[in-house]
Structures are given as structure tokens and as C-alpha cells.
């Protein structure tokens, strides 16, 4: 069985697809047949939206379903919000097998159960062959703000920067599949709430926090520097990178700092809170390899720099557009 255009027609077949695959796994008291879901929310909430178009849709360490949930959960978490609800829109290319679709839906269910985030409204559309790549998912998340003031504009001079784990695993995994390489790592795709919740509750003075997604470490640090008007210096030798990710980057001539992560974050905190933070980070499997990679050296001028292994300092440049291999 596979998805046909008629499954998107709105009639009987659409209902069948929804019943047999989506509701079968994702049903809850808030996901109803009405045109909109009614919620009552108290206090400040955080809202985020993201679209997921990853190719291939299945990869070592996850799939597009898991990625969508983790993506939304992480965006809420790093803003200091407890993930509560999400909406999802599915754009499906005709011909996607029911089996694959169901696998994705089960991943969504499993990943959502880790944080308790609930799918409260959803939509499916089917497009003709070639109009999208198997399946695209748009997801919007709503979370209850537990801690205010975490912002990329809030970095302070003297802050240390902690990266929660090895960088680039997701990007290297995905690009390896596309290049027909066999790499001995998996995507880091994961929901970070289980680690971030205790960080928020322990009252660590988190000035800024971001999950490292597209553009990787280089993008986030440049954005931090710009938004807070600070100079940031990281040390090449302190940045956690798995050996095979390093090898992958050497092969294609690209920088690990530009590779995407999907379950790794960076935060800026005062040095005095480092011990408290590491007690938590080290006690979670997801972040046991967390490391201090650098610090905010000065306020008043923007810049993100990296100190090379041999002591010279250069700009931490963001990758231009597509990551294309060097030839010579």
C-alpha cells in the first residue's frame, strides 16, 4: 500500500489514511476532528515553527519524524520553555509507502513521549510525484516559559561557552548517505529537554542558549557575537569532534564548524556556575561529552574567532551557501 493522490482529496480515502496511520498512533484527548483545537494557557508561552525537508528521510540515528519532534522540542527548550503542544503539517509525495509513513508516525509518537509534548492539530496534503521529496513536515510548538531572559542578545563579558557534545554528527551522517560514504557514527538527533529542564530548575544563570542546527557552531557563534555585540574566542583543540566526522570533513574539504547538529546545544553562562552546570551535563548520556570550548572575551565589538592548534587566531567563518567539496 502506498499514498495516492486520492488520499489527499479530503473524502473517504483521506479519512482512511488519517484513521489508519495518524490517529492510530497519535490519538489523544486534544486531537479531535474539529477545525481547530481549543486550549487554555496561563502565563507566558513560547511559540516556534520549523519545516523539515531532510533527504534521505531515514538515516542512522533517526528519521524525519523524530527530527521534527526533537527540532521543535529543542527550540522551545533552549528558550527556557517546557514543551507542551505541537501542530504538524504533512506534505506527502504520492507513492510514499504506508509502511514508511507509519514508521515516521511511530517515531513521532516515541519522540514526543520522551518529553510529553502533545500533537494537538495536524494536516495532511498529498502532492503529485516529483512535487516534493517523499515527505515534508512543518511543525509548530508551544511551551510554557519557565525561565525568562535567555537570549542571544544577552551574552556577557567573561561568560564561558559550553558545547553539550560532539559537533557535526547529524550533518556528517546525512551528507555521508548522499555521497555513498559509510560512516561509523549516527545523527545526534535527540530531544534535549531532559537535560535542559534540570539546568533551568537548578537556577543556573544561563545568558544564552541555542541548539546547533543548520550552519552549525559557526553560525550560532557569529549570531551570538552580532546580537550581543561581543567578541567570542573558541579554542580549536577544545571543540569536541568525533574522529570520523573529522575524517569526513577532510575528505570533502569542509569545516566541522559548519556541519549541522540536531541534538547538541551551546550555552553561555558565568564561570561561577560551571561546576553546577557540569554536574547536570555529565549525569546525562546525551551530554556526557560536554566541554567548555571558549569564552566571551570582550564587549563592544562583534566577532567570533577560533584559536588554531598552534596558537594563531582566525575568524570563525560561516560556510557560504551549499557545502560543496573542494577539488584540489
Amino acid at each position: 500500500m502506498y499514498v495516492k493522490l486520492s488520499h489527499g482529496g479530503g473524502a473517504k480515502e483521506t479519512r482512511e489514511l488519517i484513521e489508519k496511520i495518524f490517529l492510530k498512533h497519535l490519538k489523544n484527548e486534544l486531537l479531535t476532528n474539529e477545525d481547530a483545537t481549543i486550549l487554555s494557557l496561563e502565563g507566558k508561552v513560547a511559540v516556534t515553527t520549523d519545516s523539515f525537508t531532510v533527504s534521505p528521510i531515514f538515516f542512522k540515528g533517526g528519521d524525519i519524524g523524530k527530527l521534527s519532534v526533537a527540532g521543535v522540542v529543542n527550540d522551545l527548550s533552549v528558550m527556557g520553555a517546557k514543551p507542551l503542544y505541537m501542530s504538524m503539517g504533512f506534505i506527502i509525495e504520492e507513492g510514499l509507502s504506508f509502511e514508511e509513513l507509519e514508521k515516521i508516525v511511530i517515531s513521532i509518537k516515541e519522540e514526543a513521549s520522551k518529553t510529553g509534548i502533545k500533537l494537538i492539530t495536524a494536516d495532511t496534503k498529498v502532492v503529485p510525484k516529483g512535487f516534493c521529496d517523499k515527505i515534508y513536515i512543518n511543525a509548530t510548538g508551544i511551551g510554557k516559559l519557565l525561565k525568562e531572559g535567555i537570549s542571544s542578545t544577552n551574552l556577557k563579558e567573561g561568560d564561558i561557552l559550553i558545547v553539550s557534545g560532539p559537533i557535526g554528527n547529524h550533518g556528517a551522517t546525512i551528507l555521508s548517505i548522499r555521497n555513498d560514504f559509510d560512516i561509523d557514527i549516527s545523527s545526534d538527533c535527540a530531544s534535549l529537554w531532559e537535560v535542559i529542564e534540570p539546568l533551568l530548575k537548578e537556577d543556573i544563570e544561563i545568558h544564552a542558549m541555542r541548539d546547533l542546527t543548520r550552519g552549525g557552531l559557526a553560525s550560532v557563534l557569529n549570531e551570538f557575537a552580532k546580537s550581543s555585540n561581543v567578541e567570542i574566542l573558541i579554542n580549536e583543540e577544545d571543540i569536541p569532534i568525533e574522529q570520523s566526522v573529522r575524517g569526513f570533513c577532510e575528505i570533502l574539504g569542509i569545516e566541522p564548524y559548519s556541519l549541522a547538529c540536531e541534538g547538541t546545544f551551546i550555552m553561555a553562562i558565568p564561570k561561577s556556575d560551571a561546576e553546577k552546570a557540569f554536574n547536570i551535563l555529565k549525569s546525562h548520556k546525551l551530554t556526557e561529552k560536554a566541554k567548555v570550548v571558549g569564552e566571551v572575551i570582550k564587549k563592544g565589538k562583534e566577532g567570533a574567532y577560533v584559536k588554531t592548534l598552534y596558537g594563531s587566531v582566525r575568524y570563525l567563518e560561516e560556510a557560504p551557501g551549499e557545502l560543496l567539496p573542494r577539488i584540489c
Binding site: D180, F181, D182, I183, Q243, S244, R246, G247, F248
Partner: peptide, 8 residues
């Protein structure tokens, strides 16, 4: 095999 990456 290059540092854990295998390819043809």
C-alpha cells in the same frame, strides 16, 4: 577507510 569513513 579514512578515519572511520568508508567509501569506494
Amino acid at each position: 577507510d579514512t578515519m572511520g569513513v568508508r567509501r569506494k
